[in-house]
């Protein structure tokens, strides 16, 4: 790690990489919901887009390969809402446990 020059993983400009793969997909309902929560909470002043980016950057380089775009965004939204005091870690943990017990699929757990 002594070679580390301080450039952070998200700061990608100029790095070598392979050909651009022209991938795209239609967004799933849960992705659209993450997007909506991000817009609504930032409009309501609970966090800034800078706060979201900071949370994603601080997740470290592996996160870019191991998670999807909206995985990272919900992680960042949640991190910022905890910091804003919107709900507690205890409330989050209890709710996630309850949601996970509702069923095997997103549709079952989200109840639609």
């Amino acid at each position: 790690m002594t070679e580390f020059d301080g450039k952070r993983w998200h700061d990608m400009g100029g790095a070598g990489a392979g050909p651009v793969v022209p991938a795209e997909h239609d967004f799933a309902l849960w992705e659209k919901r993450v997007d909506a929560l991000m817009v609504l909470c930032s409009t309501k002043g609970l966090f800034t887009v800078d706060g979201l980016r900071r949370a994603i950057e601080d997740m470290g380089p592996d996160v870019f390969e191991n998670t999807t775009y909206y995985d990272r965004w919900i992680a960042a939204v949640n991190q910022n809402l905890i910091e804003a005091g919107t709900y507690t870690l205890g409330e989050l943990g209890a709710k996630m446990d309850e949601v996970a017990k509702r069923g095997e699929t997103y549709g079952q757990a989200a109840r639609g």
Partner: peptide, 23 residues
């Protein structure tokens, strides 16, 4: 289509549902 409602529930989807319901 991205894997959606009838795919196994992921950790991050669980978080999305929880965050949305808490809000």
């Amino acid at each position: 289509y991205r894997a959606d409602n009838d795919e196994p529930l992921s950790y991050w989807q669980t978080m999305e549902i929880a965050v949305r319901e808490l809000l």
